[in-house]
């Protein structure tokens, strides 16, 4: 068995054996979807005349996928370093790309399951999401999104030495970003300057591109722009993560 396959297997077992992580990854974002979906059931956004669910479903999905990517790799890196497991890996001939590659594949798998689950629920009658024919494009968009947010998670996991620090940094980043990027409420409800300002947030690009693909709120140009933005964030945070990565907490 290759190091990459073994690490992926261990990561998969750790993931499915932890009920708290499963809840946080799958059920928690679903609560947002259900609550917002039921509150605004059958209502349209005045500014655009589109149903709320066409905003909320892609928004909550993007946020849930991004959140899981950030938290899972940040927690894992912090924990592996704290427990000296990274030191153990450092003392084996396994290369760092195999280690990060296994986390990447796990994050992609989680993201795909989340996407199928969230869209599946949103399609149910009480919510009434209507998928556009461009929906398969959401898949590559999600891959770009997971990649970008994974690099952010690597940076957080390298900076934070405790679970509390991971949660604090990641939440401070992800919760405001969710509101400012239109995950929980339509961007059309935000003032113009905020709509423009939110262009500096990676989740905005993920939201826009997923919305364009799933519910047709936007066109092919929005999907390409979203993916391009996510690539830029991946390069920036990838470079930062190379600088901040540490094998050990010891000086």
């Amino acid at each position: 068995m290759s190091a990459y396959a073994a690490l992926t297997g261990a990561g998969f077992r750790a993931q499915v054996r932890d009920k708290a992580t499963l809840f946080f990854t799958f059920a928690f974002p679903l609560i947002f979807l259900v609550v917002f979906g039921l509150i605004f059931s059958g209502q349209d956004v005045k500014a655009s005349g589109r149903p709320y669910i066409s905003y909320i479903a892609p928004g909550v999905m993007s946020w849930g996928v991004a959140n899981a990517a950030v938290f899972s790799v940040a927690f894992t890196l912090m924990q592996w370093r704290r427990d000296d497991l990274l030191r153990l890996i450092r003392m084996t001939p396994t290369r760092l790309p195999a280690v990060l590659g296994s986390r990447y594949v796990l994050a992609l798998g989680v993201g795909v399951v989340q996407a199928v689950l969230f869209v599946g629920i949103a399609l149910l009658p009480p919510f009434g999401l209507e998928l556009k024919s461009s929906w398969p494009l959401a898949l590559p968009v999600l891959v770009f999104g997971i990649t970008a947010f994974l690099t952010i998670g690597v940076v957080i996991g390298s900076l934070a030495d405790t679970p509390e620090a991971v949660a604090a940094i990641a939440n401070c980043l992800m919760v405001p970003m969710a509101f400012l990027s239109g995950s929980f409420m339509p961007m059309d409800m935000l003032p113009d300057w905020l709509q423009t300002g939110s262009r500096i947030l990676p989740l905005r690009y993920l939201n826009d591109a997923v919305s364009a693909a799933l519910s047709g709120r936007g066109d092919m140009g929005d999907i390409v722009l979203g993916c391009g933005g996510l690539v830029v964030f991946t390069v920036i945070f990838g470079a930062v993560s190379l600088k901040t990565f540490r094998w050990s907490n010891r000086a």
């Binding site: 068995m1 190091a3 073994a6 690490l7 750790a14 427990d83 497991l85 030191r87 001939p93």
Partner: peptide, 19 residues
């Protein structure tokens, strides 16, 4: 320094694969 939520054997199998 153990892989979390693994049995002793699963942990060691993973370490063996790393080598």
């Amino acid at each position: 320094a153990f892989f979390v939520r693994q049995t002793a054997r699963e942990h060691l199998t993973t370490v063996a694969a790393l080598f």
